[in-house]
Design a protein around this nucleic acid. Structure first.
Lengths: 217, 217
DNA sequence: TTGGAAAATTAACGATGTTAAGTATTTTTA
DNA sequence: TAAAAATACTTAACATCGTTAATTTTCCAA
């Protein structure tokens, strides 16, 4: 029955068009410019048509949040080959910060906006799959670090949360303009080298202080 | 000329009424329920009257953000008496986390929402005074910790940002529902003891790992 | 008492997300 | 192939939002 098959393909195509349009809007014009009507304009359909493919705006944002995790995953492909778990941990942090500063709109919908979590709450299996996966790879690395004496042994969950918290804290403060006026040269902006350098220094200080393996280097 | 004086007092009173109404709304009903019309309803004036006392909604939110810092300052009065800088640092973190979990709406407008920073950008002297003051007391404590050998000596700014980043990261992840599904007992909610305990453990692990003063205790 | 400033209101504009009802289009059935 | 049924899409509308312009009411001074 090739006919329903084709129809489903068309349906998926339009879904993709909608998501592409949303992405274009929020990457190029920022989050608040992602509106149902502008999306409809871009794909040249009427606003209500969008509702035939997505339940509501939150569902669109949920899908964008998923695409964000996909994009972040791609950036993290350079981690697998790093043997030393502490070096890997540092690179993970560096990747995370870079991703956030380079893709502030994606970062926003992944870790700051309410919308995707609201969608999650109304699903039958309402786990935050993407968050769990990401956190688990962090935990794994933290565990390796503890086993090899790079990190003080202790509650792996607590330690992982510290580290995630730290990098998320830096990135989200930057994205929400809390560091613009605080970091030395007054004219910082997201993507600015100064900001990134400062954040890398913070990460560096943290991991150096935390490193228990005698004096490394 | 007591007449213009009284008028100014009345003007201030209405300003206060507006801010009180806004606070009531966002504390009791959450951020997105703070609307100009609801504020007007509460103070029993027409919506446009609010604009005679505040330039726009952002300016109201800016004032709420200021009140938040005031409230946070009150909570931190228990710090002055703590001699040991590392103990003080821990208490600072604990206070910060508690404040965030107990006043999520205040925390939101202080450290997450765009609005207050947008107001700042259009002021002549556009420093983020409140942020700077708070960060400076943190820096001071970090410096003391370094001088007394509790923390690895290094860039004070970087170290301070690490610590602020960490606690802000934890609180903002919690406030934006990123920890609800992640922390063991599935039914976490803001204000929940589990969440708070987990965060304290993270803070604890962090500061213990970072502590350089031989084996304390 | 009246004229003018100050304070407050009404009405409206252009957005927003979303729903209900109606129209085209396409597919299935007789 | 023509009628019936299902699908796809649009138009119109609702309630809400922040905000501005024009208008009315209130109040004080000459």
């Amino acid at each position: 029955m090739g006919i329903t098959e084709r129809k489903e393909k068309q349906k998926l195509e339009i879904k993709k068009m909608i998501l592409d349009a949303s992405m274009k809007l929020f990457v190029e014009e920022g989050f608040e410019h992602v509106t149902m009507r502008k999306i409809a304009d871009l794909i040249e359909y009427s606003p209500t048509t969008v509702y035939l493919y997505f339940k509501d705006k939150n569902e669109i944002l949920y899908n964008l949040h998923e695409l964000g995790f996909q994009k972040m995953g791609e950036k993290n492909q350079n981690l697998a080959e790093i043997e030393n778990p502490l070096t890997r941990l540092f690179k993970m942090g560096e990747n995370y910060i870079e991703f956030g500063l380079e893709n502030p709109e994606f970062y926003d919908v992944m870790f700051i906006q309410h919308a995707p979590m609201q969608v999650l709450e109304q699903m039958e299996n309402c786990d935050w799959k993407h968050g769990e996966i990401a956190l688990n790879t962090l935990k794994q690395t933290v565990e390796e670090c503890m086993q090899q004496g790079f990190l003080k042994k202790g509650n792996i969950d607590a330690a992982s949360m510290s580290i995630w918290g730290m990098v998320h804290g830096l990135v989200s403060l930057a994205i929400r303009q809390r560091l613009d006026k605080l970091c030395p040269p007054a004219n910082n902006f997201i993507g600015n080298a100064n900001l990134k350098t400062m954040m890398r220094q913070s990460l560096n200080w943290f991991l150096n202080s935390v490193d228990q393996s005698g004096k490394k280097k």
